[in-house]
């Protein structure tokens, strides 16, 4: 599903392709510019570095895409990532329980957090902005409670998530595999299509017999699981779960989804777009680092990029829909 116009199928329409893939075009232009600006950009180690950087945001943003497609927003993902990473580490390091279960435990904690957020909105009628804002604080608080404000070392399996498989970093493998799974679920399953219907028109979906409340809870559970995975990758890279892990990441995840072409009013979004959105953010950060731009200025640039990217998208849609 996309918001693309009905184009006659006559060969390859370059103009339409460019108009419908603005973020991708932007990404390519960005890469070309950095390639010209600095020789250090297009080197193996740097690209792997970008891949690792992008993986945590992208994985989190995959889950966020489900929520946004269903016309919600999930501000709790950064905190959920932290709590999940903390819980999986606590499980083995502090409680001494079997390491093999630490990743499933982390994912289950993420799912549970998502379920609570979703249920507050679906059954308690809170706007998702509010329910997830509440969870952002509650979950971060719980993380601090469990850890007593101190980092906990990760177990072997969570550390493996941040390691390498041969020459390829595991985060990049997860980035690709979980992206394929997310795209499949969003486009091929009843869960995904229901999310589009609910986000596109809640009332029409309800009157067609689609269980709107269950759909809302489900997308938050999905978001929670992806956030947990993202949190454990982050912890695995550091070999320890920090109580402040992933704080503020929710905004990057939302930005990635929106740059990728999803509409905050729901009903429109693609996993591939989200990946591109996350790549745009990561490549800009990387490029600015290579060009030795100060971290303070980087924030200014990133903000401007978000505004410009979404602005272009709004303009494009206006033209398409006449």
């Amino acid at each position: 599903m996309s918001s693309t116009a009905i184009a006659p199928k006559k060969g390859f329409d370059v103009k339409a392709f460019l108009a419908n893939n603005g973020a991708l075009v932007g990404l390519v232009v960005l890469c070309l510019a950095l390639f010209i600006a600095t020789p250090r950009f297009l080197t193996g180690p740097n690209l792997l570095n970008i891949g690792i950087q992008v993986s945590t945001i992208a994985v989190m943003a995959y889950g966020m895409t489900f929520v946004i497609v269903a016309a919600g927003i999930d501000l709790s993902v950064g905190s959920v990532a932290a709590l999940s990473a903390m819980a999986s580490s606590y499980w083995i390091t502090t409680a001494g329980l079997p390491d093999a279960l630490s990743i499933p435990v982390g994912l289950a904690v993420g799912a549970a957090c998502g379920w609570v957020t979703g249920a507050m909105s679906a059954y308690g009628k809170l706007p998702t902005f509010i329910s997830s804002l509440a969870m952002l604080t509650v979950v971060r608080g719980l993380t601090l409670v469990i850890s007593d404000g101190r980092p906990i070392s990760t177990g072997a399996s969570v550390s493996w998530l941040g390691g390498d498989l041969g020459v390829v970093p595991v985060p990049i493998i997860i980035l690709v595999v979980s992206g394929l799974i997310a795209a499949f679920v969003l486009n091929r399953t009843v869960i995904g299509k229901n999310a589009f219907a609910v986000g596109g028109n809640t009332e029409a979906a309800r009157l067609s017999g689609i269980p709107v409340k269950r759909v809302l809870v489900t997308v938050f559970v999905i978001s929670g699981v992806f956030a947990a995975l993202s949190g454990m990758i982050l912890a695995g890279r550091l070999d320890s779960a920090q109580p402040t892990l992933a704080s503020g990441y929710e905004l990057d995840a939302i930005a990635a989804v929106v740059i990728g072409g999803a509409s905050l009013s729901g009903g429109v979004g693609r996993i591939s777009g989200t990946l591109i959105g996350a790549l745009v953010l990561a490549v800009i950060r990387n490029g600015l680092n290579l060009l030795s731009v100060s971290a303070f200025w980087q924030q200014v640039v990133i903000g401007a990029v978000i505004a410009i990217a979404v602005g272009f998208d709004v303009l494009r849609r206006k033209n398409v829909r006449h």
Partner: peptide, 17 residues
């Protein structure tokens, strides 16, 4: 406002139920 998901295709709208 109540019958259709306007962003979705004809096939999807017919198929929701």
């Amino acid at each position: 406002t109540q019958g259709l998901v306007l962003d979705a295709s004809v096939a999807e709208n017919i198929g929701y139920a």
